[in-house]
Each structure stands twice: as C-alpha cells, then as structure tokens.
Simulated scan of single mutants.
Amino acid sequence: MKTPFIVLEGLEGAGKSTVLQVITQWLEQRGIDYLTVREPGGTPLAESLRELIKKDWDERVSPEAELLVMYAARVQLVNEVIKPALAQGRWVIGDRHDLSSQAYQGGGRQLSKNMLAQLSDMTLQGFKPDLTLYLDIEPAVGLARASARGALDRIEREALGFFERTRARYQELAAADPSIKTIDAEQTPEQVKAHVLAVLEAQWPS
C-alpha cells in the first residue's frame, strides 16, 4: 500500500490542532509510524520563511511576493521532509498544504487560477495528498475562536471579506476533488471527531 499523506485545511479557528490529535491517536492505536508537519515551516529554511510571511512590515506585501514565499517554503518541506518520510513508510499528516495557497492567495488575494496552477505544477510536479480534510467554518466564527487564543498575525488580521473569499474558494475546490472531504467544523468536538474517524476508517479500514 502506498504510504499516505494526509492534510488538514481550513480557516483560522477551524480546529485543525484538535483534529490532528484525533488522527495521531487513531494512528497510534493501530501501531502506525507517522510524522506531523506544518506549513509554512517544517525545515530550518521553511521556518525562516514562515517568520517572514507572518511578520508585520513597514511596506505592503504584494500578493505575488506572499505567494512565492509560500511555495518556496512548501517545496523545501516536500522535498526535504515529506517525500523522504513517505519513502521510509511513515505516514505524514500535514497542517496545510497546496490547497491553502489555492484558497488564501487564489481566493482571498484574488490571484489568477492560471498563475497558481502553473506555480503548483512547476514546484510540486503533481505531488498531492492522498486525503485532505477540509474543516469548514463561518469566517466570523473562526476568527472569534482564533482571537480568543491570542494575538493575530498579519494574515489573520485581514478584513472579513478576505476570509469569505477564501472560504468560497475552499468550498469550490473541495466540491471538485473527491480526495477532499469536508467536515463541518461548527459541530460539537465529539461530532467532528466522529466524522473524522468515519472518513479515516472508510479510506483505510481496520
């Protein structure tokens, strides 16, 4: 069996960290070796790029510059960490991947789909997750949750309309790709957990 790459996606406050715990516990119960990664980040270079992208600058960060930094961090993580782990038979669970750029920079920043497709093809060369869990949440609800956790970074402080466009693109992409499963993140934690486990068991039965 091909070693799986699973990704969690969603707006701020959607509960990715909680779902990550659900998945890792499920893997541990099965005795499966795994690695967790996050984007942007996951290597020394990619973590430095993460700081750059989240930092407040005394200048406007152009959408194109933001996009290129995201892909630089992503391709470094994929080539140096994710692919080697998968080759060793370790499952990889990622907190964000390419779908984030399609949604945030494509939907939120309104960059062209053609630009995003070309950049994705050039850097990832068709590499994609085996399963993506998209945690869907109303932007206002998610931002309220995120604000309660502490200070927001540069992207998290964008206007509500930015996140509404991002969510709309997420939903559009999820509807078009059967490997993306949508989870209602506004359910109770118990309901979210049950839905996530049902998806995992359906794809990889005991």
Results as ranks from 00 to 15, higher is better:
residue 113 K to G: 15
residue 119 L to M: 15
residue 162 F to G: 02
residue 39 E to Q: 04
residue 73 A to I: 06
residue 106 G to R: 12
residue 43 T to V: 04
residue 45 L to W: 04
residue 155 I to S: 01
residue 98 D to H: 13
residue 79 N to P: 11
residue 42 G to C: 02
residue 53 I to R: 09
residue 149 R to F: 11
residue 32 I to S: 00
residue 7 V to Q: 07
residue 83 K to G: 10
residue 186 E to T: 04
residue 126 G to R: 01
residue 28 E to A: 12
residue 136 D to R: 06
residue 27 L to C: 03
residue 52 L to M: 14
residue 115 M to R: 11
residue 105 Q to R: 08
residue 6 I to N: 03
residue 25 Q to Y: 08
residue 8 L to Y: 14
residue 166 T to Q: 08
residue 17 S to E: 13
residue 150 G to S: 06
residue 165 R to V: 05
residue 32 I to V: 10
residue 138 E to S: 00
residue 158 E to I: 01
residue 22 V to N: 01
residue 152 L to D: 04
residue 95 D to Y: 07
residue 34 Y to W: 14
residue 175 A to G: 14
residue 189 P to R: 06
residue 133 L to A: 05
residue 143 L to A: 02
residue 44 P to D: 04
residue 53 I to D: 07
residue 107 G to S: 05
residue 89 G to T: 13
residue 72 A to N: 07
residue 10 G to E: 13
residue 67 L to D: 08
residue 170 Y to S: 05
residue 17 S to P: 11
residue 11 L to M: 11
residue 8 L to P: 15
residue 83 K to E: 15
residue 66 E to W: 09
residue 186 E to Y: 01
residue 195 H to P: 11
residue 33 D to C: 07
residue 150 G to I: 05
residue 160 L to Q: 13
residue 102 Q to C: 09
residue 54 K to S: 10
residue 21 Q to N: 10
residue 185 A to F: 11
residue 42 G to F: 01
residue 147 S to Y: 00
residue 67 L to V: 12
residue 6 I to Y: 04
residue 22 V to E: 03
residue 38 R to E: 03
residue 64 E to N: 13
residue 35 L to A: 02
residue 184 D to K: 08
residue 136 D to I: 02
residue 19 V to F: 01
residue 103 A to T: 03
residue 102 Q to K: 12
residue 157 R to E: 01
residue 193 K to W: 00
residue 200 L to E: 05
residue 24 T to P: 07
residue 1 M to W: 01
residue 158 E to V: 00
residue 40 P to V: 02
residue 29 Q to F: 02
residue 26 W to A: 00
residue 34 Y to P: 00
residue 141 V to C: 04
residue 77 L to R: 02
residue 202 A to H: 13
residue 196 V to H: 06
residue 195 H to R: 15
residue 50 R to T: 06
residue 56 D to Q: 13
residue 53 I to C: 13
residue 145 R to V: 00
residue 142 G to L: 06
residue 173 L to K: 05
residue 152 L to V: 02
residue 204 W to V: 08
residue 81 V to D: 01
residue 143 L to Q: 06
residue 57 W to D: 09
residue 16 K to Q: 14
residue 47 E to D: 14
residue 46 A to H: 04
residue 2 K to L: 15
residue 127 F to V: 06
residue 61 V to I: 15
residue 60 R to L: 14
residue 8 L to V: 15
residue 194 A to K: 14
residue 203 Q to F: 09
residue 108 G to H: 06
residue 89 G to E: 10
residue 100 S to G: 14
residue 130 D to K: 12
residue 151 A to T: 07
residue 132 T to N: 11
residue 166 T to S: 14
residue 4 P to W: 12
residue 6 I to D: 03
residue 68 L to Q: 06
residue 144 A to H: 00
residue 142 G to T: 09
residue 193 K to N: 03
residue 153 D to L: 03
residue 40 P to T: 03
residue 20 L to F: 06
residue 89 G to Q: 09
residue 80 E to A: 11
residue 54 K to R: 14
residue 108 G to L: 08
residue 60 R to P: 09
residue 32 I to G: 00
residue 11 L to R: 07
residue 7 V to I: 12
residue 58 D to M: 06
residue 30 R to D: 04
residue 153 D to P: 03
residue 115 M to K: 08
residue 166 T to E: 10
residue 98 D to C: 11
residue 13 G to C: 05
residue 3 T to S: 13
residue 82 I to R: 01
residue 65 A to G: 12
residue 23 I to Q: 01
residue 33 D to N: 10
